[in-house]
């Protein structure tokens, strides 16, 4: 298989995995929420909308992954933010689970906890990155001292 063909296949495979991950995520979240709140289930139309949203979002995610000049922390923040946005928009405009007028408690709680989750994510990544970089620089220091 030529290099170009392989790269195209690789890109498609990655795209599909992102698509399926997003689709599975929003299906699981909203199936659970609907079951808990309404005692109802997702319809075929809802699933189709989810699929279209996932397909479009996957394109965005694939573009984000092509950005090489951003830090690991920023990359994770962008992915988390985009996923949260998808969940909130689908819940607001498609399933009407989130609404400022009605069910505002769920809407406000979700927004607050998404922000809290983001803060935790940033802290976790900064600590992890510092640890990795510290270890790498220690190895560098040992290497240089070994040679001198």
């Amino acid at each position: 298989m030529s290099n170009k063909k392989f790269n195209i296949l690789k890109f498609i495979a990655n795209y599909l995995i992102i698509l399926i991950s997003i689709f599975a995520l929003i299906t699981i979240i909203f199936a659970g929420l609907l079951e808990f709140i309404n005692r109802s289930v997702l319809s075929g139309k809802d699933l189709l909308i989810f699929f279209i949203v996932s397909a479009v979002a996957s394109i965005l995610f694939s573009i984000v992954f092509k950005l090489n000049n951003i830090s690991i922390v920023l990359q994770a923040i962008i992915i988390y933010f985009l996923l949260s946005l998808i969940v909130v928009l689908v819940g607001y405009y498609v399933l009407y689970i989130y609404d400022i007028g009605h069910n505002y408690k769920l809407f406000i709680s979700t927004i607050i906890f998404i922000i809290v989750g983001l803060v935790f994510l940033i802290l976790f990544l900064i600590i992890k990155l510092r640890k990795v970089n510290k270890s790498l620089n220690e190895n560098l220091k040992n290497f240089k001292e070994r040679d001198h």
Binding site: I72, V132, L136, N137, H148
Partner: peptide, 12 residues
């Protein structure tokens, strides 16, 4: 490598 002052990981 002896001329490297410090390293840090990037994305990808």
């Amino acid at each position: 490598i002896n001329k490297i002052e410090k390293v840090s990981t990037l994305v990808n």
